[in-house]
Every structure is written in structure tokens, then in C-alpha cells.
Design a protein around this nucleic acid. Sequence first.
DNA 1: CGCAATTAAGTTGCGCACAATCAAAATGCG
DNA 2: CGCATTTTGATTGTGCGCAACTTAATTGCG
Lengths: 147, 147
Amino acid sequence: METTPRIGELACFALYTASRAVIGLYRPVLDRLGLTYPQFLVLMALWEQDGRTVSALGDALQLDSGTLSPLLKRLEAAGFVERRREFGDERRVTVHLTEAGAALEREGCAVTEVVGTAAGMPLEELLALRDKLNEFTESVIRHRAAR
Amino acid sequence: METTPRIGELACFALYTASRAVIGLYRPVLDRLGLTYPQFLVLMALWEQDGRTVSALGDALQLDSGTLSPLLKRLEAAGFVERRREFGDERRVTVHLTEAGAALEREGCAVTEVVGTAAGMPLEELLALRDKLNEFTESVIRHRAAR
DNA sequence: CGCAATTAAGTTGCGCACAATCAAAATGCG
DNA sequence: CGCATTTTGATTGTGCGCAACTTAATTGCG
């Protein structure tokens, strides 16, 4: 690369703006449910499998306890989840959906559908884009670990 | 969609993790320069064209003054930029690179090169991914505005 | 001209992300 | 068993993002 690249040429900037754009697309819908985007992701992870530990949620969402602990506290205060210290291992905390949290699944499911029409491309292309991104992330994380 | 999609199936989640992964890839390099990722983007915008106004930077980076004002204050405190009230229009503030800020361009240019090898795909594919993402963002923002 | 409407940037408040640190519980090795 | 090490989650501190609001300057309409 001879000259400094322009911002618009950077893949990292394209990712950064694309990610914020979708989150902004979801925002008004999630607002009505009283959720932020990361909170919504946590609920999705629990709809898939309830009773996960904090670290299991962290693995699923690539977030650490510094982010999850206060987030879960807010989700609990909102009445969507409940945290329980495990009996066997007192260090572990499992997170469980309340009735209200479980009830959000139906509406929550619909949240993600808006991206299909907003993406401006056929579903097939969107799925291909998603797969390419996951492949990319996988590789980047491997390169990060290797140091 | 009959059932709730799994997190790994969501394009939005793929974007979210991919974006954070690249930023994390850049972090150790940017740390050495004393920059955060958004600060680095602002400098890139200024290397491309110095003396932009705050709102022009906001247009380029899709950020508002609530984000940029404190960020620019920190960049100024670090000695990389200088802010000047415009003479013609006292509302406007132009942002100018200092010598130190301009001097970062050479090293800053190199920062973005690491993604090429970490991406785990040929440059051509990475550029195609970038273009697809920009197309996607464009469409999502249009759908956001239309309401 | 006079004043309402608009525009530009800054401020406030909240919720992430993430590094660094901490406390408590569990594990494992001599 | 005893104690160092590891694991798990929580806490602290900094810097975004973004909505809502404020302030000050400019514009434009009657």
C-alpha cells in the first residue's frame, strides 16, 4: 500500500458502520420491549438454552464478566431473568428466564426479521454474507490468540 | 421463520462480533500510538482532508457531536489535533492536525495492514466483503430514514 | 428590521466493551 | 492434609455511542 488508505476503503470501517446501522435498525423495536441490543442477545442465548452460567453466556456472545455482570443485574431488575448461585459450585452463577423473559421470545423472534427486508439483497446473499463474516471473525480471533 | 433463530444464525450477530474482533486486532497496535479505534478513524479522516468541521467528521464517520465533542477534546489534550472556531461562522469548529498528529500518518497507515493477513482470505475476497457490507449499510440506513 | 426557526457544537445521562483488579470458592500437588 | 494455583464472577475506571437537551450563532420570513 503506497498511500494512506481512505476510510471508505477500509474493511474494518465497513464492519463498524454496518454493525451500528443494524443495531440502530433494531433500536426502536427493542425499545418497545424495554431491551437494549446486548440484552436482547443474552435473552436469545437463554431462549436457546436456559440456565447457562455467566461464563457460558460470555463464550456464546464473546463478552466478559465486566460487561455481563452489570447487564445481567439490569435484566434481573427488569424482571426478565433470575440469577442463582449453584449448590455444587458456589463460584458459579446460572441465569434463568423468568416467565416475563420467556414470554418475550415470540415478539423477540420477530425483531430479527426486519433486517431481511432492510438488507436490500436476497436472503441467500445475506446468508452468504453472514457466513463470510463468521469465517472472517474466526480467522481474526485465531490471529489474535496467536501472540 | 417458524422457530426462534439461534444467535449463530443471525447476520446482525455476525456483524457485531466481526466488528469487535477487528477492533481488538488493532488494539495492541493502536495502544502503542496512544489511540483508541474511533480516535484513529478521526485521524484517518483528517489525513484525508485536514481542517474538517465537527459535523463534516460526523458525516464521514456516522457519529454525532455527542460522541465527537469529548473524543476531539481528548485528541486535543493528547496533542494530535487543534480545534478552531471559524471566523465567518462562529458556530462552526474546524479540526486541524498538529505536527504530532500529521506525523502519525506513516505508522497509522501500517495499522490497517494487519487485517489483510488476519482475515484468512485473499485480498480480493476481503474487498468484495467490504463492498457487500457498504451496500448493506447503505440499504439499512435508507430503511431507517424511511419512517 | 425584528423575531421565530434553524443550525452547529457542547453537555448530560445511561448502557455497553474492555482492561485491570479483587474476593471467594474449588482444585491439585507435594 | 495444607497451601499455592486456578477458576468464577463482581467491581472499578475509561472511552465510546446515542438520545435528549442546552447554548449560541445564523438564517429567513413577515
